[in-house]
Design a protein around this nucleic acid. Structure first.
Length: 800
RNA sequence: GCCGGAAUGAUGGAAUUGGCAGACGUGCCGGACUCAAAAUCCGGUGGUAGCGAUACCGUGCGGGUUCAAGUCCCGCUUCCGGCACCA
């Protein structure tokens, strides 16, 4: 048989579709496997080969599971709300709906040409009414449970996209969409109270199987810190200044306090301030700096002393000056700190610059040169003196604080509440009505979906208002509660909303009455294996775990954690070693590769090119090896002879079945393919194989290169589709060769090898090694003091 | 600055618990087929010395542990990713 990929690809893709063999069935008696890949954002430029790699991993697993008899749910869909589509619409004047449909069609065509075994009957489009109805429904449930609120504070704002971004969307001070610098702006926006779920999100990690670096990144993002709140009385006001610290043990070393420039105490006791003007000027200066500028000036501490307010150390009674400085943030802890310059490098720099006392309370460093942050004996610390263990010192201080009633244990998280809004058109409308008498009123559930109205002008307002604000017919409405005149919210939801629950919808994608039926969710959830990009670990993956956990808490979903297992693929870089991007012109279009080499070659190559989890550059040349392999695979049909098993090949087959089976589970696709190459080389060396053996080979290859495998299977007269044939099993005893080679070392140096029978025992192997021609001279006249024997591998003689 | 990860031939990358470094693929060299080329097939391919068998060296750098180190320990260098004045 010759490998004619064009003919074979379309032939089998058509047959699979007609037979509907990749549709998940709702037969709840069978064992299930739910494999999930991150659904794509349908951009105008279409897919590149990186998408193909991202899906090919679980594609292989899903196909293997089907052959192992599982009822497999392997769905795909489109995360279609978002800024790029809207920006295209603004530029071209074509409605985002039209742009989206066009892009989805393009993506679908590309995916189908690669022959992925997705269940196309369950496709989701997050911009469809039947879908976003439930996105809005979940939002209202959160509103009902107090997890939605509006607040006027400093927000991350992208001046280029003209939208407010969440913390997750502005990592590193850059806009996630356009990479512009983010500015801080005071604005009233919607928030989801994700911080209320910080502890649950952290705990949940204990019951799932995520790659260690994924878990670690989530833990760091949530950023739990354990410490204490301490209340410092303020002499002039009789109130207290509350601070958060992780080092209550250093309380005796406090020589000043620092508040964030925005700290409310300044406003409240303005009358007492002797240098209000100076303080105002500093505050104004800080507000001008972008996040970026603030972090660039790390080394150079600035600040102003608050004249007129004095703190009192609650344990020693000592008076302490208060400063404001932008190295203390209003958004973390209480917006104020106790400064211990001897044992904190930031406080140290500040103290040096402002000439403040530095008092050592932990011995071990040289505080005349730098802050000492290590452990040591407590000194100058009253009751703590002499304690050498940090933990003990902290505990002791906590009990002192408790006794005096001026402090207690506390926990803080770095994660902030989720700024949940876009001042844009192409997103789910937030289903809230503002009523002059009733306030914020949710749209009744029966009225969902709240439809996105048609509009001619998608241009966001220069005043930071959504285009929806200009549509009077949408904005003007009746209050659902009192019936009076009211106005609709005009912000839309951010792009992450639809993707926060899509995996639930796949279990029951056409349900008009619920986000999914309980029965179906009970069967299909959790997702058994979820694969996607590392860039989503601190965005989508956190958000969707939050939504899911909320739905669990209110009894809407049956399992706590949505994803039992999470892995991530490495990027495909351009042939220049750089990240693939349109502007660099190094993007590879999968269609072009399929056209030239066939879908199977593309699938094989993206998995063979390197470690699946590692980034690897695209190399047109390297793909030749995969094409040759497929050619040689097709050529095997000419070598079929005899029946039963070929004794020369039997071990090779069992080894290959074992290795391929195990490597797929460990996502080591590259070595699985290498093993099949070893097998094919062995078959060509042997010159022939049996019909059964070729059938086995076709089944092993089917998850990777299904089109050619089907063709071979058919030519052998195999029953049905190879895609549904039973996965081959191996016999452990047949994976070992009858004879094996031992490496023989003398004093750790390789001096030769010796061939022995597989069932030879230790003594026999050692004897044969000693007697072997190559080794004997090295042992002659020496005394063997030690014999090392590693079964199946090597022997080593230590001689004197 | 902090937290992760990595560094192996010309090249992409292999290498259970420490156990024959370089599997498999690409490229390159030689040969077969061909008028010729492409494709295909066969052989070779870490470095140095030698006609050779063979010897010595070799997994970023410097030490160490061990019969044995790419793998473990100590000290560095470079690169990649994440976080970043988080109290």
């Amino acid at each position: 048989m010759r490998y004619e990929h064009k003919k074979i690809d379309t032939k089998w893709q058509k047959k699979w579709e007609e037979a509907g063999i990749f549709r998940a069935s709702d037969d709840f008696s069978r064992p299930k496997f739910y494999g999930l890949v991150e659904f794509p954002y349908p951009s105008g430029s279409g897919m590149h080969v990186g998408h193909i790699k991202a899906y090919s991993g679980l594609e292989v697993v899903a196909r293997k599971r089907r052959m192992q008899g599982y009822n497999v749910l392997f769905p795909i869909g489109f995360d279609a709300y978002g800024l790029p589509t809207e920006n295209t619409a603004i530029k071209t004047g074509v409605h985002p709906r039209v742009v989206t449909d066009r892009n989805i069609e393009k993506f679908t065509g590309q995916l189908k040409r690669v022959g992925f075994s997705f269940d196309w009957s369950r496709v989701i489009d997050t911009t469809e009414e039947g879908y976003y109805k439930w996105t809005q429904w979940i939002f209202l449930k959160m509103f009902e449970h107090g997890l939605v609120f509006r607040d006027k504070t400093l927000v991350n704002y992208c001046p280029s996209c003209k939208v407010v971004l969440s913390n997750e969307d502005s990592q590193g001070g850059k806009c996630d969409v356009c990479h512009s610098d983010i500015v801080q702006k005071t604005k009233e926006v919607w928030y989801l109270r994700i911080t209320e779920y910080a502890e649950k999100l952290l705990e949940g990690l204990n019951e799932v199987d995520y790659l260690p670096n994924i878990r670690l990144q989530q833990e760091n993002w949530i950023g739990k810190s354990v410490g204490a709140f301490v209340n410092f009385p303020v002499k002039e006001t009789g109130e207290t200044l509350r601070i958060y610290t992780t080092r209550p043990d250093t309380l005796y070393g406090v020589t000043f306090m620092v508040m964030a420039p925005e700290h409310p105490m300044l406003e409240k006791h303005r009358a007492l301030l002797k240098n209000a003007g100076e303080l105002d000027a500093y505050k104004a200066e800080c507000a001008k700096k972008s996040e970026f500028e603030r972090t660039q000036l790390v080394k150079d501490k600035t600040g102003v002393r608050v004249e007129g307010l004095t703190a009192v150390n609650p344990v020693t009674g000592k008076e302490i000056p208060i400063y404001i400085s932008d190295y203390v943030m209003m958004g973390y802890g209480t917006g104020a700190i106790m400064a211990v310059p001897a044992h904190d490098s930031r406080d140290y720099e500040f103290a040096k610059k402002f000439g403040i006392d530095i008092v050592e309370v932990i011995r071990g460093g040289d505080i005349s040169r730098e802050a000492y942050t290590g452990d040591g004996e407590m000194v100058n610390s009253g009751v703590l003196n002499g304690i050498t263990n940090k933990k003990d010192a902290i505990e002791k201080m906590l009990s002192v604080l408790a006794e005096k009633g001026c402090g207690e244990r506390g926990v803080q998280y770095k994660m902030k509440d989720w700024a949940f809004n876009r001042q844009r058109y192409w997103g789910e409308p937030i289903p809230i009505v503002h009523c002059p008498t009733c306030g914020m009123v949710p749209v009744p559930y029966e009225e969902l979906p709240l439809r996105l109205p048609p509009v001619d002008n998608f241009q966001p307002g220069s005043d930071g208002e959504s285009p929806l604000a200009k549509i009077e017919s949408f904005v003007k409405c009746r209050c659902p509660r009192c019936g009076g005149e009211a106005r609709r919210e005009t912000d839309t939801m951010p792009q992450w909303a639809g993707s926060s629950w899509y995996f639930l919808r796949y279990t029951d994608p056409h349900n008009p009455d619920a986000l999914a039926s309980q029965e179906k969710m009970k069967y299909w959830l959790p997702v058994d294996w979820y694969n996607g990009g590392m860039e989503h670990v601190t965005r989508h993956l956190i958000y969707s775990r939050f939504w899911h956990r909320f739905l669990y808490d209110i009894g809407e979903v049956p399992v706590k954690e949505p994803y039992a297992k999470r892995t991530a693929q490495g990027l495909i870089l351009g042939s220049d070693g750089e990240k693939m991007s349109k502007s660099r012109g190094n993007v590879v279009d999968p269609n072009a590769v399929v056209e030239e080499n066939g879908a199977d070659a593309l699938r094989l190559y993206v998995l063979f090119m390197g470690d699946y989890e590692q980034a690897a550059p695209w190399n047109e040349n390297s793909m030749k090896g995969c094409v040759r392999f497929l050619d040689r695979m097709a050529g095997l049909t000419e070598l079929v002879r005899g029946s039963g098993v070929t004794p020369e090949l039997e071990t090779a087959f069992h080894k290959t079945i074992k290795k391929v089976s195990q490597d797929i589970e460990a996502m080591k696709f590259n070595t699985a393919i290498a093993q099949m190459m070893i097998l094919i080389n062995a078959i060509y060396d042997c010159g022939h194989l049996t019909r059964e053996e070729l059938g086995t080979f076709a089944r092993l290859l089917a998850p990777f290169a299904p089109h050619l495998s089907e063709e071979i299977w058919e030519s052998l007269g195999g029953e049905g589709f190879v895609s549904l044939a039973a996965w081959p099993t191996w016999d452990e005893s047949k994976t070992v060769d009858k004879t094996m080679e031992y490496a023989v070392q003398v004093l750790g140096k390789l001096r030769g090898t010796v061939t022995v029978n597989a069932d030879d025992d230790r003594e026999t192997v050692l004897r044969k090694a000693k007697e072997s021609e190559k080794i004997a001279p090295f042992l002659a006249g020496k005394q063997v003091v030690k014999e090392i024997f590693v079964p199946g591998k090597l022997v080593n003689f230590v001689v004197k």
